[in-house]
Computed example of a mutant assay.
Amino acid sequence: MSTPQLPLSDDPEKMALLETTLDSISQGVFMIGADGRLVMWNHRIEELLNLPRELLESRPNLQEMVNFQFGRGDFGTDAYLVEQDARDYVTTGGKGTPPGRYLRNTADGRVLEVQTQTLASGGMVRTFADVTDYVRAQEEIRRLNNQLEDRVRQRTTELEGANRELDAFSYSIAHDLRQPLSSIDGFSTMLAALLRADEGTPARHYVERIRAGVRQMSALTDGLLSLAYLSRKTLHWQACDIGEMASQVLADLAAKQPERKVNVEIQPGMHCTCERMLMRQVIENLLGNAWKFTVRNPEPLIRLGRMKGDDGGWIYFVSDNGVGFDMAYAGKLFGTFQRLHSPNDFSGLGIGLAIAHRIIERHGGRIWAKANPNQGATFFFTLGQEES
Rank of each mutant, 00 (worst) to 15 (best):
E13W: 12
L17T: 03
T20V: 08
T20K: 05
L22G: 15
L22H: 12
D23Y: 15
S24N: 08
S24D: 09
I25R: 06
I25Q: 04
I25H: 06
S26I: 14
V29H: 04
F30T: 06
A34F: 01
L38T: 06
L38M: 03
V39S: 06
V39M: 10
E47S: 03
L49M: 00
P52C: 09
P52R: 01
R59L: 05
R59G: 12
R59A: 04
P60Y: 00
L62Q: 10
Q63H: 09
E64P: 02
M65I: 07
R72G: 02
D74R: 09
D78K: 06
L81S: 05
P98S: 11
P99I: 00
R101M: 09
L112I: 10
V114S: 13
V114K: 11
Q117D: 11
S121A: 07
M124C: 09
D130Y: 01
D130C: 02
D133T: 05
D133W: 10
Y134I: 13
V135S: 08
E139H: 14
R143T: 07
L144A: 07
E149F: 00
R155N: 08
E158W: 01
L159E: 05
G161K: 06
R164D: 15
E165W: 10
L166P: 04
A168S: 14
F169I: 12
S172C: 08
A174V: 08
A174L: 00
H175F: 05
D176W: 03
D176R: 13
L177P: 09
L177S: 14
R178H: 05
L181P: 02
S183F: 15
D185L: 07
T189Y: 09
M190H: 04
M190K: 15
L191F: 07
A197I: 10
A197R: 12
D198C: 08
E199A: 11
T201Y: 04
P202E: 05
A212R: 13
D222W: 03
S231T: 13
K233A: 11
T234H: 13
Q238Y: 01
D241N: 06
I242V: 15
G243Y: 10
G243R: 01
A246L: 04
A251S: 13
K261Y: 10
Q267I: 03
G269K: 08
M270R: 03
H271A: 15
N285Y: 00
N289K: 00
N289W: 04
N289T: 12
K292Y: 03
V295L: 07
V295N: 08
R296P: 00
I302V: 07
R303T: 03
G305A: 08
G309F: 05
Y316I: 07
F317S: 02
V318L: 03
D320E: 05
G322H: 00
D326N: 14
D326F: 05
F334S: 02
F334Q: 03
F334V: 06
F337D: 09
S342W: 05
F346T: 07
F346Q: 04
S347E: 02
G348V: 07
G352N: 08
I355Y: 11
I355N: 10
I355T: 13
H357F: 09
H357L: 03
H357S: 13
H357K: 09
R358C: 01
I359R: 07
I360K: 06
I360T: 00
E361C: 05
G364C: 04
A369R: 11
N372S: 14
N372G: 10
G376A: 08
F381K: 03
G384V: 01
